[in-house]
């Protein structure tokens, strides 16, 4: 019984930590009033998704996804699963590009209205 409990916690603690990081990012998006802080919350949310994908790719007693002649490739459990790593590699760079585009929008908003606070912006627009 106790062995089973320890196995359960060892198998799931990474998921719980990524969910905590995701909740921090969601709090930043929903409750902060400055638009820059909202963008930082979006980045934290995205990094939690990246951590989740990388954590589900792991196997115990496996090595990195580069071929070593001493380790046979016929046995699949010798190497990590390379597919989530590939997907996240592109997602990180696209995230940086999206961050640049959103900051360009924010600079334009600041040049036009002189503020980045959400409530003041709504008052000035209407």
């Amino acid at each position: 019984m106790k062995k089973k409990m320890i196995d359960f916690i060892l198998g799931h603690y990474a998921y719980w930590f990524t969910i905590i990081i995701m909740c921090i990012g969601l709090y930043g998006i929903l409750f902060k009033r400055n638009l820059i802080k909202k963008t930082i919350g979006l980045t934290i949310f995205q990094s939690s998704i990246v951590l989740f994908y990388v954590s589900i790719a792991s196997k115990w007693d496996a090595t990195v996804t580069v071929l070593d002649e001493n380790i046979p490739i016929e046995n699949v459990s010798n190497y990590l699963n390379p597919l989530p790593h590939t997907l996240m590699l592109t997602a990180i760079v696209v995230g940086v590009a999206i961050l640049g585009a959103s900051y360009a929008l924010l600079i334009n908003i600041y040049n036009r209205y002189g503020t980045l606070d959400e409530q003041e912006l709504l008052d000035k627009i209407s």
Partner: peptide
Amino acid sequence: TFIMIYDNMARGEEED
């Protein structure tokens, strides 16, 4: 693209 993003943002900030 990284250089382009930085240059445009620095120039846009100088404008205001």
